[in-house]
Every structure is written in C-alpha cells, then in structure tokens.
Simulated scan of single mutants.
Amino acid sequence: MAMSESDTRIKAYFSEPKPWRAELATLRAILRDTPLTEEFKWRSPCYCFENANIVTLWRLKDCCALGFFKGVLLEDREGILIAPGENSQSMRKVEFTGLAEITGLETVLKDYIGEAIELEKAGLKVSFSKHAPEFPGELIDRLDEDPEFRTAFEALTPGRQRGYVLHFSQAKQSATRISRIAKCAPRILEGKGLHDR
C-alpha cells in the first residue's frame, strides 16, 4: 500500500490518546494489506484506489467505524453494513466497539474492501435519488435577496446543496434556520460544503 506517512495529520490521527486508538490501528493494519493509498480527507484517514475514495475510518463517540463510500453497491453477505444517517444514499459503515469484533471480521472486511475496489474498477456508480429536499422559506428568501449568495449556492455540487438544505431544514424555529444560513454563508461563498475543511 502506498502510504502518506509524511502527512503529519495522519500520524497525529493514529497517535492521539483518544478513544478507539487500538481499534483504528487494527483497521489501518487491515487496510495496509490492500492496494489502496492512504490520504487525509474530511479530518479522517481516507483510502483510495486510483484517486477514487473507497473507504474511510471514523472515530465516533460510541464506536469507531469503517465507511464504504459506495457501500450501497456492496452485496453485504454478512449483513454488517448500516447507513450512517437517514439521508445517506451511498455510504455504508461497519461499526466496532472492540478489537475482538475487528479481528473476528478481518477476512470479511478484506473481502468487502476487495469487492469495493472491483466495483470502482468496473466504473459502477450509485444512482442517487433525484428527489431534492424542499428548500426552507428562509433559504429561499436569502437566495432572492442576495444575488452573490444565490450564484455561490447554485455553483455548489448537488450533494453540497443537499447537505446545506438538510442542515437548515432540521432547525425547528425560523430564527434558528436564519442563524444557520448566516453562519454558513461564508463557506457557501467560498464554494465549500458543510463539512469541507
């Protein structure tokens, strides 16, 4: 595996005395035994095949996880993949709360990683739902009032637009939605998604 050992962010990620350190190191060792390259994206190690994102590692509050970017396309013969959120169309993850779970699934994980690489080689794509979430009125108002903001928002990828719309819509009160839009406006004007660095 081609590794980005010189990337201090990757070194820090695996050496920080934070939860799931041993579990993430074990998952990393499994990934080292594949043809994937290691990069650092979205504040986590990301494993790629010919510049395409295949899997990522996550340190979560209650567990750590191995996330497959096109996980919805995997056969999931063992029934271990779950969607990270109710709006996840492509990503699927496997959660772990102990080393024994990881070592017990090592062969299965390698098979899933191999299948994910083969899907990428075959050029398979995820069919995303064309149903766009409804824009909250506060966002429509901002788009109508601010042409620069509208241009920047419309220039975002559909996925980034969707992420913002969902984030804004989840607020129950209008004042909170307005506040969220104002807080995110500088990122939108920079062409960044909600979770981009």
Rank of each mutant, 00 (worst) to 15 (best):
M1A: 14
M3K: 10
S4G: 13
T8H: 15
R9I: 12
F14G: 03
S15Y: 06
S15Q: 14
P17E: 15
W20R: 04
W20I: 01
R21Q: 15
R21S: 14
R21G: 11
A22N: 14
A25F: 02
A25K: 08
L27P: 01
L27I: 06
A29W: 00
I30P: 01
D33R: 00
P35Q: 07
E38P: 00
F40V: 07
F40A: 05
W42F: 15
E50I: 09
N51P: 11
N51K: 12
A52L: 10
V55A: 04
T56D: 07
L57I: 10
R59K: 11
C63N: 15
G67A: 07
F68D: 04
V72I: 07
V72W: 04
L73S: 07
L74M: 04
L74S: 02
R77P: 08
I80Q: 12
L81S: 12
I82F: 05
I82T: 13
I82R: 09
P84F: 06
P84G: 01
G85T: 12
G85I: 06
E86D: 11
N87W: 08
Q89P: 09
S90L: 04
V94E: 03
L99F: 08
L99D: 03
A100K: 11
E101D: 09
I102A: 03
T103M: 07
T103R: 11
G104W: 02
V108A: 06
L109Q: 05
L109R: 03
K110C: 00
D111F: 01
D111Y: 05
G114R: 00
E115H: 05
E115N: 03
A116H: 02
A116I: 02
A116Y: 01
K121E: 02
A122R: 15
L124Y: 12
S127E: 15
S129R: 13
K130F: 10
K130I: 10
A132C: 09
A132V: 13
A132P: 08
P133D: 11
P136M: 07
E138H: 06
E138L: 05
L139W: 03
R142F: 11
R142C: 15
D144V: 12
E145K: 12
F149W: 05
F149C: 10
F149I: 09
R150E: 05
T151V: 14
E154R: 08
P158F: 04
G159H: 02
R160N: 14
Y164C: 07
L166H: 13
H167T: 12
K172R: 06
S174K: 15
S174M: 08
S174A: 10
T176G: 06
R180E: 03
I181C: 03
I181G: 01
A182D: 15
K183H: 13
C184H: 11
C184T: 14
P186F: 02
R187P: 01
I188A: 04
L189P: 05
G191V: 10
G191W: 10
G191T: 13
L194W: 08
H195W: 15
D196I: 12
D196A: 09
R197W: 12
R197E: 14
